[in-house]
């Protein structure tokens, strides 16, 4: 006998969680885009999506957020700090790749300076992940040594039932256990079994690719130019990526008043590394694409012992010119044979 959450009871859960002070967020189709958003009722959730087009990172690291407001008066300067609005949240129906992505970024945001924007939201969120029973041509979690039922980054893992009537509940963290206390009487014991997981074919040999990237001789390889020739230099891959975390701090306003904001930035842009002198150490798109791959699979793991990729596949799925991490690492795997 295992714990089961029946899907016809989900609305009661949403109601119960809201009463307990949580806001409930989940995958929805809104305004012709699939994304994670707050819902009032369970019926608003779209739990049949393989993966939302926009990633879960926006819930922890929004594309633009205020940090500081300033007003300069004749003989005084006033400032006001901003932190994210506080509130406990349940993120219901995340995918394992998205949840893993958040855990991957934790050491980055907590490495030297503890990013209070990130950690406030992380500490106030319960991630209830649903294991995948479907995948598409771009899913690649298994190539990253993750799986359609990885628990990394999740507080609760739900496994869809074979009879499609609900989910088998696995409590992963204390935070998840606590959140499920609010619905303890809704969760039932049953002998129902979980549906088979999605089959996600392994697309490249990660270890072999990483070894090739670590070899300094390959930094100047012709490969980089060839693989990235069609890259148009937009930030679609980095902005949709759950683990890409670069940001820029901008002051908007004038000498007398304004707002300091934290905005997403991308290594795909030429401006990202442009010096004030006009010199750009990454002057070509191939150097920028190399940076993205090296950062994810060489520098980041060198520092934090984990690859900065959870295999969601959004970079390839939504690339305007059909590029992405999968193709690049596949080609590198071949080179290093």
């Amino acid at each position: 006998m295992t714990k089961i959450l029946f899907s016809d009871k989900l609305d009661n859960c949403v109601e119960r969680w809201k009463k307990a002070g949580f806001s409930v967020i989940g995958p929805v189709q809104r305004n012709n885009i699939s994304t994670y958003a707050a819902v009032e009722r369970a019926a608003e959730l779209d739990l049949g999506l393989i993966l939302t087009e926009r990633s879960i990172k926006e819930l922890f690291f929004p594309q633009s957020e205020p940090m500081l407001q300033y007003t300069i008066k004749k003989d005084s300067i006033e400032t006001k700090d901003f932190l994210p609005p506080s509130g406990q949240r349940i993120i219901f129906g995340a995918r394992p790749c998205d949840a893993s992505g958040m855990a991957i970024d934790d050491p980055l945001f907590g490495w030297d300076y503890k990013d209070e924007y990130w950690f406030q939201r992380r500490n106030e969120s319960v991630i209830v992940t649903i294991a995948c029973t479907q995948s598409d041509d771009f899913c690649m979690c298994t190539s990253l040594k993750l799986a359609p039922d990885s628990t990394k980054g999740s507080d609760i893992l739900l496994r869809p039932l074979e009879n499609k009537r609900g989910w088998l509940v696995e409590e992963i963290t204390d935070r998840g256990r606590d959140a499920f206390k609010a619905i303890a009487d809704i969760v039932q014991e049953s002998a129902d079994t979980a549906a088979p997981l999605a089959v996600v074919e392994k697309k490249f040999d990660l270890d072999r690719s990483v070894a090739w990237l670590q070899n300094p001789e390959n930094f100047e390889s012709r490969f980089w130019k060839e693989i990235s020739m069609r890259c148009i230099g937009c930030a679609s891959c980095t902005f949709l990526c759950p683990t890409c975390h670069c940001f820029d701090i901008q002051d908007e306003g004038d000498t007398y008043s304004g707002m300091r904001r934290k905005n997403w930035d991308s290594c795909s842009f030429a401006l990202f590394t442009m010096h004030t002198s006009g010199h750009n150490p990454r002057s070509t798109q191939s150097a920028r694409w190399r940076q993205r791959i090296m950062h994810k699979f060489n520098y980041f793991p060198g520092k934090f012992s984990v690859n900065s990729c959870s295999g969601c596949g959004r970079c390839s799925r939504q690339c305007p010119v059909d590029m992405g991490i999968t193709e690049t690492l596949q080609e590198i795997s071949k080179l290093s044979q």
Binding site: N31, I33, I232, A235, S236, F239, F269
Partner: peptide, 26 residues
């Protein structure tokens, strides 16, 4: 519709008419 925009500039980069080496927004 514009509320969805993430300023990835994919529209600009994909456009043959947006050839400026440095766009006004940059």
């Amino acid at each position: 519709e514009f509320a969805k925009c993430i300023k990835c500039y994919a529209c600009r980069q994909a456009c043959p008419m947006c050839y400026c080496r440095r766009c006004i927004v940059d």
